[in-house]
Amino acid sequence: MGRKMEWAGREKHMGGIPRKMVFLAVGAFAKAVANLLNTTSVHNVDTLLRLVRSRPPGIPLLTVSNHMSTLDDPLLWGFKGFPSVDAKLARWALAAEDICFKNSLFTYFFRLGKCIPITRGGGIYQEHMNEALQCLNNGAWLHTFPEGKVCQEDAPIRRLKWGTASLIVRSHVTPIVLPMVHSGFQEVMPEKYFLNRRPPFPLYNKKIRIMIGEPLEFDIHKMMQSAISKSRDDPVLSSTETTSRRWPAISPHGLALDEAAQRCLYSTISEQIQTAMEKLRSLGKSFLK
């Protein structure tokens, strides 16, 4: 299927009409499920709305959240006051290839919905990650689920995959990174509802809580210098490059990073994001007490 119908995701495809229709339909569905069928509360909503609607021109936005159900996106954007039917303001999102792009019809639909196929286990330098990177380079909004898979347990945020960190580092302009944590979607769309299957439709009368944090600031150039130095001094990291040589050397922001330095840098960034998400999760639980 070539590059998974990349042409269908372009803004000018058929005058943008199919994309607008998809966001009108999916946005209305998300509004109905989040507000009519269930109760949704949002903490710090103004920060998200401000960054979506009026961040500085050319500055990309990267939102990250935990992943509790197959309906996290689009329901995450269905709360009152969010422009969920506006295709121009809508996020780009990384979506699992084996679920959202398993046939031509699904591929076309999710492409119209500004989704980028990602092969789970395919590594951080797989082909379509360049599409995600281009979105950031264009100053767009991208959402990722850096845990990498659905987890419906009430448990701490798991170790994050490094793909999101690699996008932050390689983006021409360091994106505004906004952490989010939600709960309740695992009850709206449980993985094992009847005969170990998901329900055919979202469930109702559930409570959804969305915790939006504050933007994280990364001094990427300084962090890169630190990673280069640390990787050279750490015998485990320094041996990585000579034993694997699987990752290409990259030179973002004018500094050369071999695989060892990349691993060190991506790990540091991921840990900071994970810590911020876990603080939000704990804050949300305290609100429920």
Rank of each mutant, 00 (worst) to 15 (best):
V45R: 15
N138P: 06
P56R: 06
R281E: 04
P83M: 01
I228W: 05
S270A: 15
R158W: 11
Y193T: 07
A30C: 08
R50P: 01
F145D: 10
S69G: 02
K161I: 02
Q186E: 15
W141C: 09
I176M: 00
K289C: 03
L160I: 12
A227V: 09
L62K: 03
S282W: 04
G9N: 07
L265N: 12
E271G: 00
R232Y: 06
A276C: 07
N44K: 03
V26R: 10
L178F: 05
A25S: 11
D73T: 07
P146F: 02
F106C: 08
E131T: 12
D72L: 00
A256G: 08
N205C: 06
Q134V: 01
A34M: 03
P200H: 14
M129N: 15
K192N: 13
F194C: 04
W92L: 03
A132Y: 02
Q272N: 08
L283R: 08
P202M: 01
I176R: 00
V169I: 13
M68Y: 00
P252M: 09
R91K: 14
F109H: 07
S286R: 00
F287L: 09
F185M: 14
T144Y: 03
S282Q: 13
A93H: 05
L89S: 12
A260E: 02
L112S: 11
S171H: 07
G9Q: 06
H13S: 07
M224L: 05
M277Y: 14
G184F: 00
V169Y: 02
N44Q: 06
D46N: 15
R281L: 03
L37C: 15
V85P: 01
N103T: 09
G58W: 09
